Amino acid sequence: MTAARPLPDWAREASLGFFVHWGAYSVPAWAEPSGALGTVPDDEWFAHNAYAEWYANTIRIEGSPAAEHHAREFGGAPYDALLDAWRAESYDPADWARLFRSVGADYVVPTTKHHDGIALWDAPGSGDLTTVARGPRRDLIGPLAEAVRAEGIRFGVYYSGGLDWAFTGGPPHRSSADIELQRPKDADYNDYAFAHVVDLIERYAPDLIWNDIDWPDAGKRPGPRSIEALLARYREAVPHGVVDDRWGAPVGDYATSEYAHDTDHETGTGWEHCRGLGFSFGYNRVEDESLTLSPRELARLYADVVSRGGRLMLNVGPTAAGEIPAVQRRTLEGVAPWMTAIKPHTLGRRMLRADEVEVTDAAWWRAWATPDGIVVVVDAPAASVRSVDGRPIIRIVLPD
């Protein structure tokens, strides 16, 4: 099995990535805001799933709030009818890219195929379950790749190798145990997913492949369509490329956590913490400002992750039309000046020992070391900071 490698310079220096969860689920744009993943009991989570991108699963759980919403608003229409209703008429990838750059994005990773099985490009073998064949009737991935790279940002792809409800059918997942029991493991799905990812590599040469959930077990055995063969092709095509750790096999270049889930992965350096601005990744029209991170909360989260050796992967969930929702844009534009000031002070960073700095008159603070000194982020302008060994202090106050 392909072994993980040391992170390339770009990934080691990166501190902020952006997910983009966009799909047919952006048409209803609805989920019950039940709480963050990892804080809601497993036996409650699936029927009350806060992830709008899981809409295709949640509406099939009888009695769930999402099922009731779907019956009321869409008459219980088949899920893929939402693909036909999706137009992406206001999609402006250059505008998205400019926004990401203004916040200091190092890389951007859109969903190319989520668990619903709908591909956002002309994926081989997907028939009419693509945005080229139906709905928007165009490739949504290529223009974004061009736009973010034009802004000097790395481009990656998300792919759900572990679940594809359109391919497998079957009952909805009602628990985490159901996912393991019902996820596709056979050679047919492995061949299908393998062809998809090869096509993504050949078309877009992504700097990062973010696989989700798992990979079919048939691909974990040696062979021409194995994970090992797939990643060998990827690393030959993109030598500086990296992959995450969600393959169900020890091939990842870095570990990931998600909201309050898998936080035990947040050790050492190079790990990545992902979450949305609210409880959902896909756009959820229920999430207003009270359920969305403020600029100050986002800055605090970023400083915390960076100080502990990680990278923050923050999600944006566009509307079905292709607009960044105003509630999300306000936070990003609000934090942008602060991010512009702090980002240069994350390069060459290393974690700091508790005895290397003294901070007083601050209820909260985080710190890390750089070649230029010690960076200390504090929550109060009156905070006093001193390095024990006399190194220069770069003091940064959280935004209001």
Rank of each mutant, 00 (worst) to 15 (best):
I153K: 06
E44W: 10
L99T: 12
V357M: 10
L99A: 04
F19S: 05
D178W: 00
I324W: 02
R285E: 08
R366L: 00
A382S: 15
A363N: 07
E333M: 03
A47F: 12
P78H: 04
A52Q: 04
P172E: 07
T263F: 00
D304W: 07
A177V: 13
A177K: 13
S280L: 09
T168N: 08
V157W: 05
I118R: 09
N284A: 11
N49R: 07
V388C: 10
S26I: 04
G223E: 12
A81H: 11
W247A: 11
N190R: 15
N190F: 09
Y159Q: 10
S280N: 06
G270V: 01
E32R: 11
V27N: 03
R308V: 02
G317H: 09
D199L: 12
A341Y: 09
S15T: 14
L298W: 03
R329L: 10
A133S: 11
A177S: 11
E202Q: 12
V198S: 00
R349V: 03
R98H: 05
T269V: 14
S290Y: 03
V327E: 07
I324E: 04
G76I: 10
L230Q: 09
E13V: 09
A187I: 04
R98Y: 03
R5Y: 05
F74R: 14
G278F: 04
V238A: 01
E44S: 13
I59E: 05
L301V: 14
G322W: 03
A232E: 15
T340F: 01
W271N: 05
L277C: 11
I118W: 07
E297L: 08
D92P: 03
F18G: 07
Y192D: 07
W22I: 05
Y107H: 12
L293G: 02
P318Q: 04
G223V: 12
T331Y: 03
L163W: 03
G76A: 07
G170S: 10
P337M: 11
A249K: 05
S15M: 01
T131G: 01
P216S: 08
D214H: 14
A166Y: 12
A341M: 13
P8L: 11
D389I: 00
D122P: 01
F100T: 06
D214P: 08
T131W: 05
K343M: 14
Y51E: 13
R353M: 12
A4V: 01
E258R: 06
D361E: 13
R395A: 09
L208I: 06
P172V: 08
G223P: 13
E289T: 10
D207R: 01
G373H: 06
P318F: 03
A166M: 08
T292C: 12
P143V: 06
P381E: 15
A362S: 15
W121M: 00
V108E: 06
G248Y: 03
T111D: 06
E297Y: 00
V376F: 01
W96I: 00
E146R: 13
A195D: 15
